[in-house]
Amino acid sequence: MSEIRNVSVKDIEEAIYKLALDAAYHIPEDILEAEKKAYENEKSETAKKVLETIFENIQVSSEEEFPLCQDTGLGIIFMEVGQDVHFTDGYIIDAINNGVERAYKDGYLRKSSCHPLTRANYGNNLPAIVHTFVVPGNKVKLIFDAKGGGSESMSKVQMLKPADGRAGIVQTVVDWMIQAGPNPCPPTIVGVGIGGDFERAAVMAKHATLRHVGQPSDDPELADMEQEILTKINNSGIGPAGLGGLTTALAVHIEMQPCHIATLPLAINTACHVNRHKEIEL
């Protein structure tokens, strides 16, 4: 057991503020590397041109602090809290929301949260969506994911039958991504959650999009499925921006956990080619 540690929520607010700004302007290194590798392997001239525009965008965005995409997303936070952490100086969720609100205002980021029915814009990009996990120890890990609406809309949860099995999962993910086509801003990172229950599958799928791009699953069977799905998606010909080519997805990442004997939950969450996320441990 670690010692009980006080963590001020003011430090959390400041961390979220910095992560949100960093995510909006600066692409994660691993994604840029994967896109450069894709560029080398690409045979379509149009696809190469699209990737060149994407590289130019990454540079302009970083140098001039223009957001990578005008849709700067809702703030999704994966928070791992050590069970020996004691938060001080206020309520943790308020602190996270304050950090998001300040970053979106100060950074000239788009406020995209609205009333689901009237569609009235709240003007502050709140609330942030926080997934909390209690873990051993006395540290706090924060992952900030700026999730845009275009790729998020090309997501789904489907309760398969146990008999659908591995083949059914592969087919469902491939068919879905081919049907999504140019909509989620390819080349994408495809997050897949298998098992758990209805909502856990969805959380796993989103979490999977945040893995270091192209790092295979530790489970050899899942790593094999990831490769099979990736090859099938990239054989669709959809290509970068949907304008044709060999690079429709940069990676497929699967997370899995046990499920009920009667169920086979499957979730698919797509991340677009900017896949903005940053993390810190406090």
Partner: peptide, 13 residues
Amino acid sequence: FASIGGAAAVVGK
């Protein structure tokens, strides 16, 4: 007309 999604800083120019 299709534009390139996610190339927003460049298109904005």
